[in-house]
Amino acid sequence: MACAAGDVVAALREAAEVIAEHRVELTDLDRPIGDGDHGENMNRGFAAVLSTLEEVPDTPGAVLKNAATTLISKVGGAAGPLYGTAFLRAATAVSGKSELDAEAVVAALRAGLEGVVARGKAEPGDATMVDALSPAVEAAEAAKGDGVAALLGAAADAADKGAESTVPLVARKGRASYLGERSAGHLDPGARSTALLLRAFATAAGRA
């Protein structure tokens, strides 16, 4: 299968629902090591994205770009510029296409990762969303022969593992980095929300 604009919309709806469900969990993860607003910020952003999906742009790239600008203006915390940049770069990577095949979805994911790295200047091992997104892109690349739903499933699995890998790490970027050694022993909230989003995309793709 390939993703049309409507499928990307369905994926964003699923993402908004999952984020709303995990709002408290994300904030609880953020509280001991950050400013305790990640769940609220993400929920505000994705609720705003949801409200813009009534009128659906006609290409996947346009849908992603619309989500990007909404996240940038509505999220408020670091996640706004980071996810906003990720969606914006993904949109640019697939701009003009009416449908996304497996190759294009991987290209969008990779562009998103590059955007996050460019914006936040984090590297793998810094205990950030890069630790979930980076292995997810590799897994998606490896699974792209099996179709969009399968590659997104593989990406979500890898992101879950990647997010778990942040637990022992000492944060080197973001608010948690101010805690130094004390930031170790916590699941990074940004890595967790990245894994949740990829799982939501995989779920939506599996239903299509």
């Binding site: 940038i72 915390g77 510029p81 973001g174 608010r175």
Partner: peptide
């Protein structure tokens, strides 16, 4: 002031 303000400013 802090990290994400830098990102917002750069954007």
């Amino acid at each position: 002031d802090l990290g994400s303000a830098q990102m917002t400013a750069e954007m």
